[in-house]
């Protein structure tokens, strides 16, 4: 059956963000990035170019890294959305976050949420990826501070800690 949303009328949609269902009211032209930041106050996901050219807005949709600036929020009903806010376990950082903090994988921090989510998706599938795989996975995330080397090292260290934990 066709689901129609008329123009110039807000829509009420149930979104599942970080495992929690929330009913949100928004204008149908809003992107997932706009709804996360403006309607749900989840400002961890960063707003960069808005045109797909930087990766700052990356989130996981059904476990897959996508750019939230180019996803219509109305098309996300019933899908699992993961953002950087869902990474920490209570007051304890996720091993990837801790590794980024320890190894200087984050400087200004603007690219960090997008890279953390992209790296998490990779490590969920491949617990021990080589440098090449990491490079490929985050080739859509621009960082203007670190020169990427610390980021690769942080992901490798995060992966090591996650494997350690899984033992």
């Amino acid at each position: 059956m066709n689901a129609v949303v008329e123009a110039r009328r807000n829509v009420r949609v149930t979104l599942r963000v970080n495992g929690e269902q929330t009913e949100v009211l928004f204008a149908p032209y809003k992107t997932l990035l706009e709804v996360l930041r403006e309607e749900m106050n989840l400002t961890g996901t960063k707003h960069g170019c808005e045109l797909g050219e930087c990766g700052a807005c990356a989130v996981l949709l059904d476990g897959v890294p996508v750019l939230s600036c180019l996803v219509l929020a109305i098309e996300c009903e019933g899908r699992s959305i993961e953002t950087v806010e869902g990474l920490a376990r209570g007051s304890e950082l996720h091993p990837l976050q801790a590794a980024f903090a320890d190894l200087g994988g984050t400087q200004c921090g603007y690219c960090t949420p997008g890279i953390l989510m992209t790296a998490k998706a990779l490590l969920d599938k491949e617990p021990d990826p080589g440098r090449e795989r990491i490079r490929e996975a985050i080739s859509g995330n621009l960082c203007r501070c670190t020169g990427y080397l610390q980021i690769y090292e942080s992901i490798e260290e995060g992966a090591r800690r996650m494997r350690e934990e899984a033992k």
């Binding site: 059956m1 689901a3 008329e6 123009a7 204008a27 992107t31 707003h47 109305i74």
Partner: peptide, 13 residues
């Protein structure tokens, strides 16, 4: 923010 313009949205199966 560069907002999208308004549109009607259809999601057929």
């Amino acid at each position: 923010m560069m907002r999208l313009p308004w549109f009607r949205h259809h999601a057929p199966d």
